[in-house]
């Protein structure tokens, strides 16, 4: 009986180790956690109020800051959605959900590699962005994808700054 307990304990420990190792390299694409409501900090406890300053009225029609559709960028030779891209896509998804525009996601790659490879990479980048947006609740039927590979660079210099600019997914309204 004691042996059996030891066996089970060691097996569970090893499984735990394995699962832990597995999670380290997983590319983060599941956005279900991001759709949850953002944590709103609890309002600070009210201190005894000093004499109130005279009320100042806000300007009558202060416009809300305009949301802007943002391109997303990728690491070299990768199509996983980075953390900065995820933030941009959350913002983009809000905009797309607020209207009915149809969108084309263009996948781009930097100049390095072969044309065929870059077309495939651009397609994977565009598809990754589409999946992310649909996971965020944007209707898949509104999004089409296209890959331009390295054919339409945004920047034409030959250095990392420029290559990073070109490793992007760009949005166009259809």
């Amino acid at each position: 009986m004691k042996n059996r307990f030891l066996v089970l304990t060691s097996a569970l420990f090893l499984i735990g180790l394995g699962l832990n190792g597995c999670t380290k390299g997983v590319v983060k694409t599941d956005v279900t956690g991001m759709k949850t409501t953002e944590a709103v900090p609890a309002p600070p406890a009210e201190a005894p109020a000093p004499a109130k300053p005279p009320a100042v009225e806000a300007p009558p029609s202060a416009p809300a800051p305009a949301l802007e559709i943002t391109d997303v960028f990728f690491d070299f030779d990768r199509y996983a959605i980075r953390d900065d891209a995820a933030k941009a896509l959350e913002n983009d998804a809000k905009i797309f959900k607020g209207n009915s525009m149809k969108i084309t996601v263009e996948g781009h790659a930097d100049e390095r590699g072969t044309d065929e490879y870059n077309i495939a990479l651009g397609a994977k980048r565009a598809a990754a962005v589409k999946k992310y947006l649909t996971d965020m609740g944007v209707e898949a039927s509104r999004i089409t994808t296209i890959s331009y590979g390295s054919e339409r660079p945004f920047c034409k210099e030959h250095n990392e700054t420029c290559w990073q600019e070109n490793r992007r997914a760009h949005f166009m309204e259809k």
Binding site: A11, L12, L14, I15, L17, G18, L19, G21, G25
Partner: peptide, 11 residues
């Protein structure tokens, strides 16, 4: 259990 763990680590 050992093989399972090793396979997870190799992933």
């Amino acid at each position: 259990a050992a093989l399972f763990s090793v396979s997870m680590l190799s992933v």
